[in-house]
Amino acid sequence: MGDRVTLFEVGPRDGLQNEARPVPAADKIRLIDLLSGAGLPKIEAASFVSSRWVPQMADAAVVMAGIRRAPSVLYTALTPNLRGLDDAIASRADEVAVFASASEGFSRANINCTIADSLARYREVADAARAAGLAVRGYVSCITQCPFDGAVEPDAVRRVADALLRLGCYEISLGDTLGRAAPCEIACLLRSLADDLPAERLAGHFHDTSGRALRNVEVALDAGLRTFDASVGGLGGCPYAPGASGNVASEALAARLAELGLETGVDIARLAEAAAFARSLRNRA
């Protein structure tokens, strides 16, 4: 294809926050440093959320302070509210992210509020982030199916994605949270969104529960997307989507993109080293 694709590494946050027991900060730091050395351009390193709800991310500030920052890498953080944003700024995050759901059931289960309430909250976060000179990325969960509401219509995804863009998000990551979407569903969704949401403002976030993540990436590539979230070692899942596995493995995605002739700038050998370490962290105290 002759194009360049951006791999957005989410393993240190989206992956490790779903481990049953918190991973020590030193191990998180080592993992992020390995990923930095592999040439991944963006790494979601932390989540500044309440430690009561996500104890796995309680050491976010320690992790951000301990990593060796590569000049070519942007280190991002998830910030669901103004308190989280303040902590991210203090920790020198390069950019921040907010997350919303395309389904009301998942929104209430995941963040205990309606979609409308979440977007109102994120307006404050986005305004404050931009005032601090930070770019904001948006996530939309449950783009085809919700564990509580069932099938999700493309119009619901469009409304939330468009709202996040209007808040000032530079990019919207579309998440197959359950990891069960068929390629034809992803193709249909992206065709439906094409008239209103330009492909260059969208990213793919495909969990691999049904083993279709790589195929869904290829469908999204055909639709013009050139940024994809990936989780080293296939770490991850979702506590509010029972049975969902981790995001597509970064090493598998990098290899497949190379087979397709697409450039990522990722050192495959060093990424494999990071993946081996990531897999060793599973269920470690």
Rank of each mutant, 00 (worst) to 15 (best):
L167W: 09
Y122R: 03
S103A: 14
S107F: 02
V152H: 08
Y122L: 04
R158A: 12
D117I: 00
D162M: 15
A129H: 03
D155G: 12
A129P: 08
C113Q: 13
E153S: 09
I143V: 15
R166D: 12
E104Y: 04
G150K: 12
E124R: 15
G105N: 09
L164D: 08
R130L: 09
E104L: 14
R137Y: 14
V157M: 03
N110S: 08
R108Q: 13
V157T: 02
S173E: 00
L165A: 10
G168F: 07
I111H: 11
Q145T: 15
I172S: 01
I143Y: 04
P154H: 07
T144F: 05
G150L: 14
G150Q: 09
R159P: 03
I111N: 11
D155M: 13
R121L: 08
R123M: 06
V157G: 00
P154L: 10
S107R: 02
Y170K: 08
A132N: 05
R108C: 09
C113K: 11
V160I: 07
A116F: 10
A163I: 04
S103M: 11
N110T: 05
E124K: 10
V157W: 01
A126R: 04
V125A: 03
Y170D: 14
R130A: 13
D127I: 12
E171G: 00
C146H: 06
C113M: 15
S107P: 08
I143C: 07
L165T: 06
T114K: 08
P154F: 07
G168E: 04
P147R: 02
D155P: 08
Q145S: 14
D149V: 01
P147I: 00
V160R: 04
C142A: 15
F106I: 01
P147D: 01
A126W: 01
G138R: 05
L119C: 08
V136L: 11
F106A: 00
G105S: 09
G168P: 07
A128S: 11
F106G: 00
R130Y: 10
A131W: 05
Q145R: 14
F106S: 04
S103I: 05
A129I: 01
A151M: 10
A128K: 06
A156M: 07
V157R: 00
E153L: 13
C142I: 12
D117C: 02
A129W: 02
R158V: 05
A163W: 02
E104P: 11
V152C: 08
V140M: 12
S141N: 09
V140C: 07
G168Q: 02
C113A: 14
Q145E: 15
A109V: 08
Q145P: 05
L167V: 02
R166S: 13
A116I: 03
A135R: 15
D162G: 15
C169G: 05
A120F: 00
L174N: 10
F148T: 06
V152L: 10
Y139N: 14
V125M: 07
A128P: 03
E153G: 05
P147H: 05
L119D: 03
Y139S: 10
L167E: 01
E104D: 13
L174D: 00
S173C: 09
C142Y: 09
A161I: 06
R137N: 09
I115F: 02
G138H: 05
G105Q: 09
S141R: 01
D117S: 07
D149W: 03
G105P: 12
D117W: 03
E104S: 12
